[in-house]
Simulated assay, not measured.
Amino acid sequence: MSRHRAPAPPDLYGRGRSDRLMRFLAAFSDVYLPAVTRADRYGQRPPLPTATGLELVVAARETEADDVVSLRLTAPDGAPLPRWQAGAHLDLRLPSGRVRQYSLCGAADDRYAYRIAVRRIAGGGGGSVEVHDTLRVGSRVTVKGPRNAFPFAAEPAVLFLAGGIGITPVLPMVREAARLGLDWHLVHTGRTRASLPFAAELDALAALGGDRVEILPDDEYGAPDGAKLLGRAPAGAAVYCCGPGPMLDSVRGAFDGSGASALHFERFTAAPVRDGRPFELRLRRSGAVLPVPADRSALDVLLARDPATPYSCRQGFCGVCTQRVTTGTVDHRDGRLTEQERADGRIRVCVSRAPEGSRLELDL
């Protein structure tokens, strides 16, 4: 799943305010986990992440569904890789220099390989097309992570909702729920059966019994309805949802009227701008002035001018789109920059803005 994904909520339950736990989880996954990974049973230690990332090789490539391929990434020398937990993702640097985020969807106990899956989106930002067209077995890539903005808390009762390629972060959670003996249920939706990846793996999970897995293609059952999906939740269940915007919005809209206890979610497309006000960007080096409408992000406007503008998650999480502001007041909406970074003029242009009618000058 590309990390054009979802703004991860600043709060674990989808509330529109940050909380200390989410800040702790982000810092923990970014810094502490890679530092404390232990040697494996053969005494080998994972390679230490560097400032430029970890170089891996594509060891296998498989077609998982229409327009979906999975890549198995390993260390060139076969060394074990840093540990990860369900919901985690990698920052993948492509040969072109693009950086995209993809969920880890393999087995978390496999210390020697990471698996990601990518749906080809011809009209997207070019990352998925590059993966499909250029990465073959033997290709070298650089990754950073794993990091986790969508952690699985392993509540006793869980409903998993996945739309299309949104199955990628959810699949390891389902495996973990099955391993722990939780009361779980999975619904996987999408356009057609042929478009839904990992059918064989989901069949294996379904074989565990209890009617725990439902496959609901749109062409057979209609577009997913949030209230009906939430009606499948075990009593008092936590809900984990990843999918396209309309599905996620439908689930969020119906959540308060459901019997579920908590909602954890992740988008894989940029969230719509909320409470936006028009402002301007001035590019210091060229002097160009770019209007930013109320319903578009600063990143959208920069991309329209220069499609090579760096970005990845479009949720204020990864930091790839960070720029420096030379003058102007920033309405920070990312929740990840430190106070010092903000004081130094840093801005994440995918989500942050400026007060109505004002102008930000970027060091571009």
Rank of each mutant, 00 (worst) to 15 (best):
residue 2 S to M: 04
residue 7 P to Y: 06
residue 10 P to N: 00
residue 10 P to M: 01
residue 22 M to Y: 09
residue 27 A to K: 03
residue 28 F to M: 10
residue 38 R to I: 08
residue 40 D to C: 05
residue 46 P to L: 08
residue 52 T to R: 14
residue 67 D to Y: 09
residue 68 V to G: 05
residue 71 L to D: 05
residue 72 R to C: 13
residue 79 A to F: 06
residue 90 L to N: 00
residue 115 R to Y: 00
residue 119 R to G: 04
residue 122 A to I: 04
residue 123 G to Q: 11
residue 128 S to N: 02
residue 129 V to Q: 07
residue 130 E to K: 04
residue 142 T to H: 11
residue 144 K to M: 14
residue 147 R to V: 03
residue 149 A to K: 09
residue 150 F to E: 03
residue 157 A to H: 03
residue 162 A to Y: 08
residue 164 G to P: 03
residue 169 P to Q: 01
residue 171 L to G: 09
residue 173 M to N: 01
residue 176 E to P: 14
residue 177 A to R: 07
residue 181 G to D: 08
residue 188 H to S: 00
residue 193 R to C: 07
residue 201 E to W: 00
residue 203 D to L: 01
residue 209 G to M: 02
residue 220 E to D: 12
residue 221 Y to A: 13
residue 225 D to C: 04
residue 231 G to N: 14
residue 246 P to K: 11
residue 251 V to D: 01
residue 252 R to F: 05
residue 260 A to S: 11
residue 261 S to L: 06
residue 271 A to F: 09
residue 276 G to A: 13
residue 281 L to V: 14
residue 283 L to T: 10
residue 286 S to V: 12
residue 290 L to Y: 12
residue 298 A to Q: 12
residue 305 R to G: 10
residue 309 T to M: 15
residue 310 P to C: 13
residue 323 Q to K: 09
residue 337 L to S: 09
residue 338 T to W: 09
residue 340 Q to S: 11
residue 340 Q to D: 14
residue 346 R to E: 11
residue 348 R to Q: 14
residue 351 V to P: 08
residue 351 V to E: 04
residue 356 E to M: 15
residue 362 L to R: 11
